[in-house]
Design a protein around this nucleic acid. Structure first.
Lengths: 108, 108
DNA sequence: GACTTTCATCGAAAAAAAACGATAAAGACC
DNA sequence: GGTCTTTATCGTTTTTTTTCGATGAAAGTC
């Protein structure tokens, strides 16, 4: 019945899942790498680099914004995005905690 | 039109996205943590712990298997799962590379 | 003011994900 | 052999994701 029961899980698990979901598409990985590559925070040049329509890229940017992994500012007719290092740090910490917990010896 | 163009991206980006997707649900995070907690690799005890039907848990386990993040063996009527540390290491390395690339100063 | 550029958003369509109950298969137990 | 337990899989429904074209809004250019 397609009901989503995500609320029934711990907040930390939900947060980590939410962030992981933001990375769960190669286009979004590629966008983040591209933003990192250019010092100047690029806007629609991303559209040129990716094999996707402008509206699709805009949609991916919106999702990254919602996950707080990027920040965006408007400059004239252009939009300027860049990585939110602060959020990346939190993400990395969550992941580090997760990897620490899961680092137990195999048993089968 | 709902066509998925994931193939158009680099293999590394696809791999990372695939692994991130495996973590993109709190139930799967919870399963991995639970597997790590118990030395003995638990099977259906996971069903007891999670607020989900048995068939749903089985489905999540299948996805984790497909992502190679867990391993499974059959023991009588029971199925025994545990974390695939090798795959976790690869995952961690991919992530480390990604975080290294994206660690550039904010610019907006 | 008219036109162009840049981007976000809307609407639609197709695909994938999430959930469950029901059923099936495979051992264990008597 | 018959029954119970355990888990995987099938079928279905609902929700979410992915994608695009079309439209709109906002700012720059002539």
């Amino acid at each position: 019945m397609g009901v989503h029961k995500k609320e029934a899980f711990g907040q930390e698990d939900q947060d980590l899942a939410e962030l992981a979901k933001a990375l769960a598409h190669p286009a979004r990985i590629a966008i983040l790498k591209e933003l990192a590559k250019r010092q100047t925070c690029i806007c629609g040049e991303i559209v040129e680099v990716l094999p996707l329509a402008q509206s699709t890229v805009s949609q991916h940017l919106k999702e990254l914004l919602q996950a707080r992994l990027i920040k965006g500012t408007v400059e004239g007719t252009k939009s300027c995005y860049c990585i939110n290092q602060e959020a990346f740090q939190s993400f990395k910490q969550l992941l580090d905690g997760f990897f620490a917990v899961t680092a137990q010896p195999d048993c089968c």
